[in-house]
Design a protein around this nucleic acid. Structure first.
Lengths: 327, 327
DNA sequence: TTGTACGCGTTATCAT
DNA sequence: ATGATAACGCGTACAA
């Protein structure tokens, strides 16, 4: 920066201002500085900037994985919103592990980010404390079924499960099962199961069987889930899967085995993945809107970063039962 | 850090060492420092660390978008490899624009990243110069059909097009068309078209029609591409689409219109997206391995960051024609 | 509108 | 194995 200052015949401070707050610098000076910057190929040092101003231009985002289109769509929108503000996004993949999430939070804190966007409202005690004590704006996503650390953008997984339960009931199904991520890894799945169970038991039918799978889940795991259901509860008439990925595996396996869907067995997923309308029969599912969730999470975080705590502390992203052929 | 030093009864420098290079510190001292760190909840300041050491722990990744599963799968693996080394990943979305890519490179440079992973080998002149002059390790992905700035991991898009061309020829199709991204936005599509054209013209048939679409492309755009092909070249017997997403739209539209696939019209995509085996008829496509590409790119970058320039400067990720029902 | 002095929190270097 | 001192490159606060 000193080189640029000399080249432009001004002080270093003026260069700093010309770059950071151009409105405080005379038009003429600014141009000279700009020319010097280009002539010398000067690139400001973000670390020095952060250290001096005690402020980074980074937001930390922690998600389970980018391999699932729901999370990547969410991150895509987060990046888009924040990039426009000159804020960059540092990604951490927790791989569905709270321990890994805790490590990520700890190491991301070293960057002194402007804020955090997290997945879910379930964190290790240490991570929660770390986040709370930081005093940073924090937006949690994907789960509105409990208290947020600071603010949350998402939906109620319980409500999602409820909707599916009611759909099954409307088709006069009463032997219901649920296949999804294990409770310890996937609290969102647990919420969906709870909602399903509430709807079913409220109608006077027995609490659905729950099969817990290890994450990440592929279509193959869906078949395993189907097998377990049929083994433990052969009378099952309808299965809710916690994600379309595993619902898909089960659906195709039913076709192979000659189990008629939805006559013999109803199948419903969550997510409305790209393939859901394409399979035969087409997959009934619950549509969620991860991109919107990402966008709103980023915008809410931005507001809070800018000191605006007047906004809502919780934003609901709608979900939508999409009834197709499989249930 | 001074607080920690006082609490542990040592100097700040020892704290720094205990954290950064524990092997240089006596076992006993290290434990005391560790305890002080935990007692005080000390979190190192990455900006200060970067400034003092003149070294960040960041890698910059620039891709067109995370919304496409190919790119997000790539980034997922990059993050996984680098996270294990304590390096974090900053993402930039170019939205298929070289101008935006240039801005991203410029602003990411301010973080003094350890290296860059970029998409494609086509960049604006200014971006190229910026990257070259930085002296940083750079890995370009997705395109091996030209000279890399530094190193490249990917495949030949020309070869992909060639393979599809030969497949069409093997089915005795000679009126061929190509639908894909516009040349200015999507150089990878241009490579695929060139390969296709090479194969077709080498067999003595006319150069295929090329339809150029604006990015990003959805299934809907595939229908528009199909329409244009049928309008400009009604005799077309086979269409290569530059991505499965648009091939899907065209395929479903053919079903709707009663155009028999593959008898009347062969359709082939690229990417082997999740839905490709699921549609009717199942989609013939070229499988690529974005996750592998990401992993290898990250590993190659790591090696170069560590000063190891002995490795290859170009790594080929295999691709694979997957013949299914549509061609 | 511009310049001067100082400090941000850490690591490198050298000394002990 | 540990400590003292000097940077690292910039923004803030204040003065001119």
């Amino acid at each position: 920066m000193l080189d640029v200052a000399r080249h432009a015949g001004v002080s270093a401070q003026t260069v700093s201002r010309a770059l950071g707050r151009p409105e405080l610098v005379a038009e003429d000076t600014r141009r000279k500085v700009q020319q010097a910057v280009e002539a010398l190929g000067y690139i400001p040092n973000e670390a020095a900037r952060n250290l001096a101003s005690n402020r980074s231009r980074t937001v930390a985002v922690v998600i389970p994985t980018l391999a699932s289109s729901a999370y990547s769509a969410q991150v895509e929108q987060i990046v888009e919103v924040l990039e426009a503000e000159g804020i960059s996004v540092v990604i951490g993949n927790s791989e569905y592990s709270m321990a890994r999430e805790e490590n990520l939070v700890r190491s991301l804190m070293e960057r002194r980010p402007l804020g955090f966007i997290l997945t879910g409202i379930q964190h290790s005690a240490a991570a929660g404390e770390l986040l709370r004590n930081s005093g940073l704006p924090i937006v949690e996503t994907w789960d509105l079924d409990g208290p947020a650390l600071d603010a949350a953008v998402g939906f109620s997984n319980v409500a999602v499960g409820c909707d599916v339960g009611r759909l099954f009931l409307a088709s006069a199904k009463k032997h219901i099962a649920f296949v999804g991520g294990a409770d310890a890894q996937d609290p969102r799945a647990s919420g969906r199961y709870e909602g399903l169970a509430q709807a079913i038991t409220a109608a006077g039918f027995p609490r659905p069987l729950r099969i817990e799978l290890q994450l990440p889940m592929t279509a193959q795991d869906g078949i395993a889930g189907l097998d377990l259901v049929l083994e433990k509860a052969p009378l099952t008439e309808a299965i809710m899967f916690s994600a379309d990925s595993i619902a898909l595996g089960a659906l195709l396996e039913c076709n192979r085995r000659g189990i008629r869907v939805p006559e013999q067995l109803c199948i419903c997923g969550v997510g409305d993945y790209e393939f859901a309308p394409l399979v035969m029969p087409s997959l009934t599912t619950v549509r969620i809107f991860p991109g919107q969730m990402g966008r709103q999470a980023a915008e809410l975080l931005l507001a809070r970063i800018n000191g605006d705590r007047s906004g809502p502390t919780s934003i609901t992203i709608r979900h939508q039962l999409v009834r197709r052929g499989s249930a």
